[in-house]
Amino acid sequence: MNELLQTYPEEVKQILAKYPAEYKRSAVMPLLYLAQRKEGYVPRQALEDIAEILEITPTEVASIVGFYTLYYDQPAGRYRIQVCTDLPCALRGADRFLEELCQRLGIREGETTPDGLFTVEAVKCLAACHRAPVFQVQGDGEIEYHENQTVELTLAWMEQVREKVRAEKEAQS
């Protein structure tokens, strides 16, 4: 039973349609994004599912997860706050921004807030050098940019997310 295929039959079909049938291995990257959508990381079972769909080995699928930085094999915070600290951003105060943000949250770079919602990480260039400090947020299967940031702006946005998550939980219970 292929869980990925069962959960996302339409999406899998659409992804496969982009590539020639004899080269369906091309679909491995979009399928990994699909597998990562719910949990924020690629569960082991998904490696098998994708391998089966594409007729390659689970090891080959795992090698893609290992090579590319936007795939994860371990769970982390629901939202990954990824701050660019490359040269152009660093010249505009990105290091200080990251340091202060971590300080205010009481965590170190790479760690997750106690509520499990946010992981703060340093990443490489995001193509937003003119609007530093900048971070992207990876979570809920989406990626969103936050540019021209200050620590205050970021903390205010995090509070909004916490509110949203609280409201979601209340609606569920």
């Binding site: 982009k18 590539y19 091309s26 990257m29 979009p30 990994l32 994004y33 893609i64 090579f67 590319y68 930085t69 936007l70 795939y71 990443v123 490489k124 260039c125």
Partner: peptide, 9 residues
């Protein structure tokens, strides 16, 4: 068709 990479310079 669009195709997304995954974070590799």
């Amino acid at each position: 068709y669009t195709h997304l990479g995954a974070g590799a310079y």
